[in-house]
Design a protein around this nucleic acid. Structure first.
Lengths: 192, 192, 192, 192
DNA sequence: GATGAATGAGATTTCATTCAT
DNA sequence: GATGAATGAAATCTCATTCAT
């Protein structure tokens, strides 16, 4: 079935926000790439910022699905955490430029504006809480170092965020960096 | 002695780029805050992007001094690494909004434009190489886990980058997060 | 029918470029004179230079029509050349300030910039080639001095260009100068 | 002897006005090329337009000397006219970019502004009057077609002006065009 | 005479958003 | 639902000229 105008706008916006960033992505470019009329963008999404958030949430849907799949079939809490991290890293490489929307719209980015990012924030908080739950499980099954699960979960996610930026943005990132990052995180949470 | 116009521009630019971000920091605002004529900004710094890089390098000077001080007087490689990380974290809190310039101009940010960020990149690479040297030392003195020092150094810096963003940007960052982050990094690099 | 915004911009631009020259013709003045919004100029014409070229081509359309009409119904090659030249001269006086756009945008002017003047150049080359064809015809019918038609055509057009500048710009141009210029050209090409 | 600052400014201005044109020649560039302080330009020449006129007059000095030399030792009025024209054409090729100042500042150019070009105009008028005198002489010695000398002189100078622009600016100017232009002018003024 | 920092008006151009059709 | 012409505020950057030293 042919995609609707709204879907075409969203797909073009994801790619352009990812490739060009927020300021250089213009309604004109989105209209050209998606082949829809300029005025329809405001019509469907209200404003540029709202479209940006919608693009972000659209990518987040995929992230959450991929991460959930990565967590399945693991034994210990530690193993499941590693599944989470690995799936997240893999997604950043599969999704191509579209993933960059998340880099720019996450609570770890510095986007200005009075846009309502609450939904995005709570989704990321959900990912951190998932890690927190896994850490708690790991503390019970003995695979994870003891401590405050939510605080450690934030540290894991910080390592993920920094690693993704290292891999995707940093010109002096070493080859095969993600495997090093996974080992780094494992050592930081595994019980000795 | 009264600061020169050039210095006043740089000071205002650091603060405004930090507070408002790149797009919302305008020449008009910089001129008003610094009290100099609008045209002097281009006169001294050439373009907005060059001023941005100059602001970034100016903050980097302070980062490097603070980190160097934090590394002094430590015994083992591991201890010195912890000194580095702690000093870096402390600086992000002391420097206030000015530190945000680095968040936006580092190789871990997604700044577009044809500005020459080579100098900034090589400074950050210098910081990572410093960590790399400390890791090598720690592998010799037995305080650090064995491995490829440069790759682990990148993982440490990624954890730093992610943690700084967690602390400064993330609305659900827990209290006292930096101490958790230091412990996280320590566990990831310390020899069992 | 009321002219479109695009047509109004072009009409105002022709006149203003003609009256004030390129540097002193500003978007602000064009918008005021044409009564359209400032931003529409870039919207329709892309840039100031492109608008300049469009203005030039618009005047060239009229020049070519007038010159073609002036060539009709002449007997010999020489007579037709004189018809060409006379029509060209007449047009410079009828068109008023609008003709000055051509003075400033022709391949005989010194316009800088990376604007694509190819179309303008080839139109002028077309005029010279028309003269060249008439000279060749005149050489056959015995009304014109023998020689290389294209080279003589360039000399005729040079005399036209210089004469137009004499008539329109030079403060010490004598009365009725154009008739003198026509006689001058006739003597230079007529077979003795 | 080392040139004075004033002379250095004038030399740089001639070249830059010739190469870049009036708008793109800035005081900054003139100061850099000449190696003198920015403020000295206004100090010595008063304004940009006055410097432009001064540059033009400086080149005109050379033109007049060259043309006077080209007129010497010729027999008839016609021959002397040809000497004038040939010397003028030669100069445009020898002087390089500096000659372009004249193209832009002559009464045949379209320079705007309230600059006092009276001196420049009267110098060009002097050149035309020289041609006029030669024509009168030629009418007496039978080498030149009869007519109003001043009007024909203007036609000759128009042909010169157009030919110089053809040669220096026009991309489709034929090889060896100046010789064709000289022949053209000769046929237009020579008595049959 | 020599210097160049300082000024600020003004230029072109961009772009989200509106709205009549 | 769909269209894209129209708007105009605001951005960066330029540059002749001034003037204190």
């Amino acid at each position: 079935m042919a995609p609707t105008s709204k879907e075409r706008i969203l797909a073009a916006a994801r790619t352009l926000f990812g490739e060009l960033g927020y300021p250089d992505t213009t309604f004109k470019r989105i209209a050209e790439k998606s082949g829809v009329a300029l005025g329809l963008i405001t019509h469907y999404f209200g404003s540029k910022e709202k479209l940006f958030v919608a693009s972000c949430l659209s990518v987040l849907d995929e992230v959450q699905a991929v991460v959930a799949a990565g967590m399945e079939g693991r034994e210990t809490g530690l193993d499941t955490i590693i599944g989470f991290v690995t799936a997240y890293f893999d997604f950043t490489l599969q999704a191509g430029q579209d993933f960059m929307v998340l880099v720019r719209c996450s609570p770890y980015s510095d986007l200005k504006g009075e846009v309502n990012k609450d939904e995005v924030v709570s989704r990321f908080e959900g990912l951190v809480r998932t890690l927190s739950d896994l850490l708690a499980r790991g503390m019970e099954d003995g695979s994870v170092v003891p401590g405050d699960p939510f605080r450690i979960a934030n540290a894991i996610f910080a390592a993920i965020v920094g690693s993704v930026r290292t891999r995707l943005l940093n010109p002096f990132c070493p080859e095969g960096y993600y495997t090093e990052a996974v080992d780094f995180i494992r050592r930081a949470v595994a019980r000795a």
